[in-house]
Design a protein around this nucleic acid. Structure first.
Lengths: 205, 205
DNA sequence: AAAAACTCTGCCCTTTTGTTCAGTTTTTTA
DNA sequence: TAAAAAACTGAACAAAAGGGCAGAGTTTTT
């Protein structure tokens, strides 16, 4: 196996930069234009060499059919853009585009493994007792059920609220941790469901 | 401007996932195959709607000519690995290698602009009153001075502690926010300095 | 010195892919 | 309830893009 030549490396770097910045690969002719190679076959030769040497992979008969190995991409592997949910529009799934107010990028290393996660901006001081302050960002792992006492993100009448979950027969109590606030009681048939449980808190001071 | 329909959102999510995982956009026909749309024009209508509503941009007459706004991509651009400081060895600067216990990667978007930042693992419940719990990670912006009442990371005898800063003549008081704890009083000449002030809190539940 | 790989040109062909036109049916909205 | 938008079908077309062939000069290897 021969070494990668300077010319090949130039072309590789161009392709890599192109993909990284534009999010799609160049065509053979676009590469040719960049390097003043008039024949598509000139570029093909270079790409074939790069493929033989393991730097790229060609996808046959596909427009813009060049792919880079995963190692070429900055390890945004476990970086995720979490949607921050604002008001939940009636009848829409939580993660529907129109409910997303903003996004926060963070590293999954501090999150549960599951990908079903979103964030809520905390409003009010009802959960002060648990160290959750007004303006904090609450990270929520989506799940339908919760255990007694867990902190859940509950959707009541289209508004998300963070409370302790206390089910009882025929009703559910949502308790604040700030004694200033009375529990919210949900009777059967009311417009209520659990969006998920608290998985983390982030505060900017 | 009408809302994004469920169908459009499905298609958008497919396109986004496709681009994020494969690093190139799908063709109109690939989208059609996925959703059982037999006419390329059916897909075109959907893409045109998504473009009108600002979710995507179409690149005319280009193979795989769909692009997403930058916000759709998790940017590893401003991801930093913050050092988590443990015990501070005598005579060493805070960020000296031997003081670093671990690192936590996170997005700078929730941090102050400065690059002089580190993290502390909170021990004890002395700052409960400010919603800072045992085990939380405190993000500290390095600076030597603080204003009265600010929460500072103070180094007392080589140990970092998080407290409210209350200077007075000839002494400094470090106050907890949990009334259970008495203030720490630092007289002049004692081994003490301010490492920085609190810039954020992160909690894994 | 010969073989192999590299770096192209030029031309042509095929496949892939985007675009346009002319409709239909259903849902949403003013 | 009429109009607009959504969500398609189907066919034809045009442009974009990949592939192949023949060849040639240059540089590396063996």
């Amino acid at each position: 196996m021969r070494k990668v030549t300077a010319r090949q490396l130039d072309i590789y770097n161009y392709v890599k930069e192109f993909i990284l910045t534009r999010k799609y690969p160049p065509t053979i002719r676009e590469i040719g234009d960049e390097f003043g190679i008039r024949s598509t076959n000139g570029v093909r030769d270079a790409l074939n060499a790069l493929e033989r040497k393991g730097l790229i992979k060609k996808l046959s008969n596909q427009a813009r059919g060049i792919s880079l190995p995963p190692s070429a991409f900055p390890s945004s592997e476990n970086i995720v853009a979490l949607p921050i949910i604002g008001r939940i529009a009636a009848g829409t799934p939580i993660l529907a585009e129109e409910n997303i107010e903003d996004t926060i990028t963070m590293d999954m290393s501090m999150l549960p493994r599951s990908s079903d996660i979103f964030a809520l901006r905390v409003q009010g001081d009802s959960m002060n007792g648990d160290g959750i302050l007004n303006g904090d960002i609450a990270i929520i792992r989506i799940q339908k059920n919760a255990e007694r006492g867990q902190i859940v993100a509950a959707i009541v009448d289209g508004t998300a609220t963070l409370k302790h979950y206390h089910p009882a027969t025929n009703k559910i109590e949502l308790r604040a941790s700030n004694p200033k606030y009375l529990p919210i009681t949900i009777s059967e048939g009311e417009n209520f469901y659990i969006a998920g449980i608290l998985a983390g808190v982030i505060r900017k001071c």
